[in-house]
Design a protein around this nucleic acid. Sequence first.
DNA 1: TGTACATCAGTGAACGCGCGTTCACTGATGTAC
DNA 2: TGTACATCAGTGAACGCGCGTTCACTGATGTAC
Lengths: 215, 215
Amino acid sequence: MMADEASATHSSPTVTPKAAYHHGDLRAQLITAVRELVETHGPDGFSVAEAARRAGVSSAAPYKHFKDRHEILHGVVSEAMDRLRAAMEEGAAAHPHGSLEAVAAVGLAYVDFARAEPGVFRLVFGLTEGHENAPDLLTKGESCFGVVVQAAAACLGLAPSDPDVQRRAYMLWSFVHGHSFLAIDMKHKVASAEIDDWDYLMSISRAILASTAQV
Amino acid sequence: MMADEASATHSSPTVTPKAAYHHGDLRAQLITAVRELVETHGPDGFSVAEAARRAGVSSAAPYKHFKDRHEILHGVVSEAMDRLRAAMEEGAAAHPHGSLEAVAAVGLAYVDFARAEPGVFRLVFGLTEGHENAPDLLTKGESCFGVVVQAAAACLGLAPSDPDVQRRAYMLWSFVHGHSFLAIDMKHKVASAEIDDWDYLMSISRAILASTAQV
DNA sequence: TGTACATCAGTGAACGCGCGTTCACTGATGTAC
DNA sequence: TGTACATCAGTGAACGCGCGTTCACTGATGTAC
């Protein structure tokens, strides 16, 4: 009776389907579905079939938008890295340029992302299937690192290309990356649970940026 | 003709089989096979069937030693954590008690482990399937952390239970953990490739243990 | 504005595959007497 | 030392399952005239 009675045949659509054919949003909807699956069932608890089911289409439909399952995963990772970078930039922008707070805020955005989407976060850094060579993902990874470098350079009053800046930025990144993983792996365990991320990131940023050359 | 002609039927045994029946070493051999698989094909590129094939037994044989596939993975992780902890302790023992070098050496053992067995390393920290609650793994994780705490406490001349020691030990761990992951994920990429682990760990240990309270 | 048609984005049935796991079985081993 | 037997640790055939992917198809859409 309803115009979209086709939806009745959908097992449990993630997003309300618009029309039976050509809803024009399948690509994005599939990526969303995969993101949810990865979040719920872990980085490998994903299948093209299940994603299609969630998007309310046949299991063959995804192949109109993606070459194979790897390409879907690639799409999810690519989109996630864009969001991660945007969040890091927002974090920096929320504090005075060159401040230690700006550096810590970049790190906080990173940790927040990991806590909010642990499955996707793991996926982004655990792509061991043959994606690691995808040049666009490498580029996106570098530009995420670039945000850290920028903030560190501004804080130290040095050029981003300065080797000392690069080194300290990498130290910061290592730390934040490790804390993120520990936070999501250990969940409620050991020390990580009792930690206030902001205090923690501030003191580590201070320790790293102030070591040897005092700030 | 040969005594072990049974081996001819084995597709490609990892270890030379001893006797057709009761070689008495299957459990250990399966764990080795899975470790190799995880290393070669990533944390999820493992199957009971393939492990059995590698060990030169039928696909039903593993079930005489393990309840299900999760239990095999559990065994691999458990064994890996034992080796990781032993390596960390050896690292610390190779330097004067209480020295900064001892702290850095613990970290180096950790990073070396990750570089030597990236697949297993990821597996240990990426068990998202329903193992994370296994109490013995949590205990082993804690005792790995304990090695860091001991080294940090000795270096700072404080008790291991001191909150400041705990905090700094966790900082060290975060850093080393992050550096390990970045090192194996980025492989030959960005800054991580050009880094000398020892120098790097020494300076980070110094920065963390000397911050605020000067050592 | 109306019609013809190329193209796009779906369907649904089918395929082969490898996997996890079970089952009844059987050969080797260790122990009691 | 020899025999009977319980137990252990394998076999190999079979099962059902869900998946990735392909295929010929069809309904909807956009465009040329």
